[in-house]
Design a binder for these strands. Sequence first.
DNA 1: GGCCAAGTGGAGGGGGTCGTCCACTTACCG
DNA 2: CGGTAAGTGGACGACCCCCTCCACTTGGCC
Lengths: 226, 226
Amino acid sequence: MPAQPSHKPSGNTGQGPRHDDLRADARRNRERVLEAAREVFAAHGTDAPMSAVARRAGVGVATLYRRFPTRTELLTAAFDDQLAECAVFFETALADPDPGHGLYTLLEKVCTTLVTDRGFDTVLMTGFPGALDYDRERAWAEEGLARLIRRARDAGQLREDFAPSDIPLLLLAVTGLASQPPDTALPAARRLLTYLFQSFQAHPPATPGPLPPAPPLDLTGLNLPA
Amino acid sequence: MPAQPSHKPSGNTGQGPRHDDLRADARRNRERVLEAAREVFAAHGTDAPMSAVARRAGVGVATLYRRFPTRTELLTAAFDDQLAECAVFFETALADPDPGHGLYTLLEKVCTTLVTDRGFDTVLMTGFPGALDYDRERAWAEEGLARLIRRARDAGQLREDFAPSDIPLLLLAVTGLASQPPDTALPAARRLLTYLFQSFQAHPPATPGPLPPAPPLDLTGLNLPA
DNA sequence: GGCCAAGTGGAGGGGGTCGTCCACTTACCG
DNA sequence: CGGTAAGTGGACGACCCCCTCCACTTGGCC
């Protein structure tokens, strides 16, 4: 296993105090802002006005800008927990003795987060090369994923022509579901994942496994005229 | 077959001249604006500034607003051709003696359009109830689709637990790919569609059919930290 | 050619977001 | 307790987008 890039004690960016030795009130406000950001981004999309986040946090805009000079910094900080969680899922998958099961569980978890915590997709998918050890983390993820896939394929659980890029493909597809209300998006994601995973298998059973329930999607506005 | 709602000779909205008996220059400008709209929407998303569309069309904003008072009117008008095309695909699918093949071809075509003409998803998916015979067209699409599916299932080409709502599910998923550059999005859509369609089948062959080539997706920004 | 309704462009008021600046407040240390 | 630097809020100028209004131009019919 490649050494994970240490993350939580995040490399100091060079300027500004590390956020855990801020003054007490400042740290409190920082937390509030992050929570507000998650809520606002979830409710109104990732380009909701900064002032809305500040208002929701009960804080002046200046405070917000002082802590998070750019929108993307706020975004990444707001979803740092989810990112860390994903890393744990990843670890778990790598440790699973059944690689296929591990992969499925990993995807299931990530997809759920993707669809539940709106705005997280922006952070997960459109990598911000600004992040310090972006390259390192990415290489790490890439290598780990490749290994997971190789193991699953060697175990005869993935079809020969499965490509590693099918993972981002799947993630991107799930992202498309996130525009729906969460009650719809979650079952939709599960069903999509199941469909796809059944297709990923090397030797599908004669009768395919059961599907999770269909989401309440109608063809809203499939206004095909003639 | 349900009578198609007549569309092209569009019911006059009540106010304003039908757009084919505008003055010659006005009609020319209208066309220019629509083309500009498609280009601008494709390049900068569906909420690019109206003024940008006007500028690109070499036309004043007033002209644009006179012809298309609201953004959604511009949007629907801009993609009217694509919408009509989809309706034709639909007809073709309904007429296909092999319902499974018809369904696949339909989806393949629609997905291609969805991924090629950016902004079209907004029109296709988020139905604008403003459209005059919105309800009628929608009911028509719904009934036709249901019939197509029923035929395919009766022919033993779709698994029992396939749900009609799996179609919007698929379309939504493809929409998620449209954020990628077209060169990537198109092969991605094809591959996704193939995967899904293989899963939709009632009796998948022991070794699944071949896949279209994998798109050049890397896990850009899958910056899973640890 | 000449008339005039249809068509046009661009200026500008209203509204909203961004990000900074500065006078004020407050936590923490001695 | 008092000093001081860290922290704060909200006003403000710059910018951008929306959409309307009106003085000007132009196509088409007689």
